[in-house]
């Protein structure tokens, strides 16, 4: 009995998973080895493709290492000012309500420079999806303290580690947003493990489904590795994330909207 027909050669050549590239990726990223942001980009693009909304999607990208993704994502994109992506996305969505509109921002971009923008967009129930790539540092500028840096973490502007007395406490953006009525879907994932990547992808999918259903604002906070900004070897990034950020920022869905 033939379970699988092997009389013909495979339709596609064998490849390693790492070689697979979603067709929306136009080229190689230029970020550090071990960086978590390209993983997040990849699952985001896969979700757009799977939802079949590629040709009605507009992205708004903030300022951080992920800013260079503007060059490699085959999506209509506005590169906006530091922190202002939710406001720009609001303007876009209001004049193009049939488009899926998302932002891509880091913790410096969203929790520092643009905390007001994301909170108000959420409170307005703006039908956009904000994606926060939280690595707990300003990666792009070389690893300084952000509002999301966890207590104890060393950065170039908290050399002895973040202590609350001097630097205050970290801001859990997803939790803040989840407390607002206009937020219909809020979740926090991490791309430090294979399971985490799969979970994050499901979260992004639900966030976009929430937007497409017109239910309200959605946000997915994604914990990403920044071995460079954390001053740890690239292979240790995922473990470090699990020991530090994941302890301060528990993973899971905080607000879910049901059909």
């Amino acid at each position: 009995m033939t379970v699988i027909d092997t009389s013909q050669p495979p339709s596609e050549p064998a490849r390693r998973v790492a070689d697979f590239r979603p067709s929306l990726l136009l080229g190689e990223h230029s970020l550090c080895p071990g960086c978590g942001e390209p993983v997040a980009l990849r699952v985001l693009l896969e979700v757009l493709q799977e939802l079949d909304i590629v040709q009605r999607t507009i992205g708004v990208v903030g300022h951080g290492c992920y800013g260079s993704f503007v060059r490699i994502m085959d999506v209509d994109v506005l590169q906006c000012l530091h922190g202002r992506a939710p406001a720009c996305a609001t303007g876009i969505k209001r004049v193009r309500p049939d488009c899926a509109v998302f932002t891509m921002q880091g913790d410096g971009d969203m929790a520092n420079e643009g905390l007001q923008e994301v909170l108000h967009a959420a409170a307005r129930g703006e039908k956009i999806t904000c994606v926060l790539l939280n690595n707990g540092v300003f990666g792009d500028t070389g690893g300084q303290l952000t509002a999301a840096t966890v207590l104890g973490q060393r950065t170039k502007t908290s050399l002895e580690g973040r202590d609350a007395e001097t630097h205050g406490y970290p801001i859990p953006v997803a939790d803040l947003v989840a407390g607002l009525r206009g937020a219909a879907y809020v979740a926090r994932g991490a791309v430090s493990t294979a399971g985490g990547v799969a979970q994050t992808k499901r979260m992004l999918r639900r966030a976009f489904e929430t937007q497409l259903a017109g239910a309200g604002f959605s946000l997915v906070e994604i914990l990403t590795m920044c071995p460079t900004g954390w001053f740890v070897p690239a292979p240790e990034g995922p473990g470090y994330l699990g020991d530090s950020m994941e302890q301060a920022y528990p993973l899971g869905e905080l607000t879910t909207w049901r059909h």
């Binding site: 067709s23 009605r56 085959d74 999506v75």
Partner: peptide
């Protein structure tokens, strides 16, 4: 930006740095 550029290889960008797509 109207969203229709996605996946065509010719997606648009509005970008002060004007570096274009890869």
């Amino acid at each position: 930006l109207d969203g229709t550029g996605g996946g065509t290889g010719g997606s648009r960008q509005v970008w002060t740095w004007a570096m274009g797509k890869a």
